[in-house]
Every structure is written in C-alpha cells, then in structure tokens.
Design a binder for these strands. Structure first.
Lengths: 200, 200
DNA sequence: TTTACATTCTGAACGCTGTTCATTATCCTT
DNA sequence: AAGGATAATGAACAGCGTTCAGAATGTAAA
C-alpha cells in the first residue's frame, strides 16, 4: 500500500488532474478512466474519491483548468482597434481549439447529467469570456443597448465556436487554415452588416 | 428462444433502429445500449450483430436517418427571395435541433474512432445540405466564385450550428427564442456585410 | 416421416467502465 | 508501547460492447 499522507489532498488532486490531462491529450476522452488516472499516479481508483466527488466532478475540474487556460490565451490578444481585437479573439479561440483538441472537446462533449448543476466557477469563467467580447463590441457600437451588445457577443462567439466544432468533428474543411479565413470573414461581414443596419 | 426467421434481416434492422430512436428520445444517448435496444424488441444483444457491424455502426445508421429527416425538414422551406430562403433554412435548422434534441446531438456527439471512416452516404447527405445553402447564396452573389460561395455557405451553416450547439449545451440563453433572433441577425448582417464588401 | 444439415438465437463469458465499502496498513497521539 | 484515527486498497457490483459455443429451430433430403 502507498504510504499514508505521502501526498496532501491538494497534491493528490493536482497529480490526478495532471495525469488526466496527459492521458486526455494523448488518447482522447474516450480512453480516460478512473483506473488509468489512478494507476498513472501510483494510486488505486478508489482513492480518487477522496478528492473528487465522482468522475463527472473530475471532468468539471479538468474543464475549469481548460477554461482558465483559454482565458489566459485570450489575454494574449492586444490590438488598438476594437475590430482588430475581435479578430484576434476569434483567431486565438480557433488556435486554442487546434492546440488542445482533446481538452477543448471535453469542454463541450461533457454534458451535465441534469441532476448536477454546472459549477458556479465554470459559469463565471464563461461570463468572463463573454465580457471580453462585449468590450470591443461596445466600443464599435456605442449607440446600442447593453442587451444588443450582449446578443451580438453571444452570436459572434457562437459563430466562431461553430466553425471550431465543424473543423474538429469532420473533414468539411479541405484546407487546413480554412477555418481561420471563415472566422475572419464572419466577424468582418457581421460587423460591416451591423454598421450598415445602423446607418440605414 | 425467439422464433427463427420470425423477422427478416431488414425487419430486424428496422425494429432495432426504431427502438433505439425511442430510447434515445426518451432517455438520451447516454442511456442507449445494445442490451436495452435488444430487450425492447424481444431479442438478445448478440442478435443485433447480425444486422449491425457494431455499436458504432448502429449509431451511424441512426444518424443517417436523422440526417434524412433533417433534409426533409429543410425541404419545407419555400421562399421567393434568396435571403428569405436562407432565413428559413436557419430557422428550420434551429427548430429541428429543438424538436429532436437527442437525435440531433447524436449527430455531432458521435465521433468517428479514426479507424472507421465516415460512411459515404453520410457525407453525401452533408454535401446535399450544403448544396441547399449554396443555391440562394449564389443567387444573391452572382459575381462570386464557386469557392467563395462554398466558403460562405459553410461559414453561415457553422454559425447557425454554433448557436444551436450553445443552446443545446447550457443555459447561455435566458430567453427561449433568443437563438432564433441570433441566427436571424447573424444571417442578415453577414449578407449585408458581404454586399457592402462587394460594392466597396 | 424421419433424419441430416443449415441457420438463427441465446446466454454465458471476457475485459472494460464508475462506484462503494469492509478490510488492511499506516501514522499520530496518548 | 498501545490504541485510535484515517489513508489506501482490492474485492465486489452492476453496467457496458463484444464474442462464440451450443441450443433451438427451420428446411430439405432420404
């Protein structure tokens, strides 16, 4: 038996999540399992239940880390013009989905089983993500209401997300960087069209 | 033991798929299993393997039926103006995803395990779907190349799909019909913006 | 009609999954 | 050193997809 108290609760949690991420990256979410994770850190599967409520909880915590990574990646975007900022967010999002396909997939594959609600921290992270998009949008459309800005932010993010989803799931995109161009034109034309709407 | 030859191969296949659809609609893809499907039609799980190569194959055939349904649903759209046709396609797509959430989810949840390639019939159905969107687009943008039309079709469909995905996965949409409005403005502004681009 | 063959179908088995829990092993305190 | 607390295990359970020997049934030949 492994030495008792060899690792603290927090250490065990960190080790398990790190091992899970490695396994996830290398073999995909299908190959993830409590036994494999536990074995990778020299513990038995049962021990994980001291740190995680269940397998779903483990996935939520993985997703939380992924979302934190995504937010950091989006911080990298620096642009003077607000439309450039939106473009950069879009490209960063697509790049992140391409760099961490398995972790990013887990973010959306993993559906809440209805009896468990989405953790609050996850919702906060998502709200933070939307806030980032709303900022340049409100700079571009100063005369629009907060609701309209919010709706536009969700629409544009959904659009870019849809592009990432289709790229990840199948081979609808012959050209590798087709997604980048698609997101770019989507954002450009949406903004242009909205401005047209206003001036009309 | 069940009577031999009580049902033909084709009957058995049809019964299994119908039972699977019922199970899927009522309990979701997580609850789907070979044993449950077989039990629902009075057979044992092993018998399914006379009709399906494996569970993945069963899912592919389910998805094929769902895609056929979707195509039929999109046929319902009739509009004189091409921009109205696009709007109707978008609304029909969102309506379909809302009416058959589980079947629609299975279409995209179910990832190919890499060793099996996507069935050709499925790819044909997807190509058919894109063709539908390209038609009104090419009417609106007669001076654009086929590649540009194709890219725009994929972009717009990805955008609407992204909206449907986000609505299906969580509660980012307080208002129930928020998705409809989002898809509508997405299409409208994209088209407007693209026209603006051309005239520039 | 009876026998022989061919096919359909089952049910047990295998290895996997998440999860629980009595038991064991270890540490800490008295 | 003894005893209590607890960390960790490993067997167990029910479920999963999948396989396959054997049983059950239909069909055709003798």
């Amino acid at each position: 038996m492994a030495r008792r108290n060899e690792h603290s609760r927090e250490e065990l949690r960190e080790m398990a999540l790190a091992a899970a991420e490695t396994l996830l990256d290398q073999q995909g979410s299908e190959a993830l399992s409590t036994r494999k994770i536990a074995s990778a850190i020299g513990y038995s599967a049962g021990s994980l239940y001291q740190v995680f409520k269940n397998y779903d909880d483990l996935c939520w915590q993985l997703n939380q880390r992924t979302l934190a990574m995504l937010l950091v990646a989006l911080e990298q975007a620096v642009a003077s013009a607000p439309d450039q900022a939106l473009q950069q967010y879009g490209q960063q999002y697509l790049a992140f989905a391409a760099q961490w396909p398995q972790r990013w997939s887990l973010l959306f594959e993993h559906r809440t089983p209805l009896d468990l609600e989405t953790p609050e921290t996850l919702e906060q992270a998502i709200a933070q993500l939307f806030g980032k998009i709303e900022q340049p949008l409100s700079q571009l459309f100063t005369d629009r209401s907060a609701e309209q800005i919010s709706e536009a932010a969700r629409t544009l993010w959904a659009g870019v997300h849809g592009i990432a989803v289709l790229r990840a799931h199948n081979k609808l995109f012959q050209v590798q960087d087709g997604a980048d161009a698609m997101a770019s034109t989507l954002l450009e034309r949406y903004i242009l069209g909205w401005q047209q709407e206003i001036s009309a």
